[in-house]
């Protein structure tokens, strides 16, 4: 009986800890890669990821086609992550690709890189 009481207490403590942890996660608002892509990337790269978003006609440099296995396969995961984190200029590409480091956490950027690999059906080049 005593054991059961302790278990209930432990369960309650665990639930409380989980609740608090959930609250902390909630304030950080981690999002799925698909959701982040749909809000931050689609405006230029497009819903299909082919670089034909609603802003694309107004950009001096065409946004990258994320479904292009050959072109995406030539980029390492680190290069793609750097482009997202610091912007296009950090990888010698267009300044029209902004830095997203203030919008996305490092973990979210890593998830987006994995998401892009699914879109291009390719793996990243070695560094």
């Amino acid at each position: 009986m005593k054991t059961i009481v302790i278990s209930k207490f432990s369960a309650a403590m665990f639930a409380a800890a989980l609740f608090l942890a959930a609250g902390m996660v909630g304030s950080a608002s981690a999002e799925t890669a698909a959701d982040n892509y749909s809000l931050y990337c689609v405006q230029c790269h497009g819903t299909a990821g082919t670089g034909k978003g609603i802003n694309a006609p107004y950009l001096a440099v065409a946004p990258r086609n994320h479904s292009d296995a050959k072109a995406m396969g030539e980029l390492s995961d680190a290069n793609v992550a750097l482009a997202i984190t610091e912007g296009g200029s950090a990888v010698g590409k267009s300044t029209q690709m902004p830095a997203w480091k203030h919008n996305l956490t490092a973990a979210e950027i890593k998830d987006i890189v994995a998401h892009l690999r699914k879109m291009c059906k390719c793996t990243g080049a070695a560094k």
Binding site: Q43, C44, G53, I54, N55, Y58, L59, T95, Q96, P98
Partner: peptide, 19 residues
């Protein structure tokens, strides 16, 4: 326009993005 490319997303003086 050149460095920050605000016109990628904003229409500036009649030319630029739509989001």
């Amino acid at each position: 326009i050149k460095t920050e490319a605000c016109n990628g997303c904003h229409s500036i003086e009649g030319n630029g993005g739509l989001s």
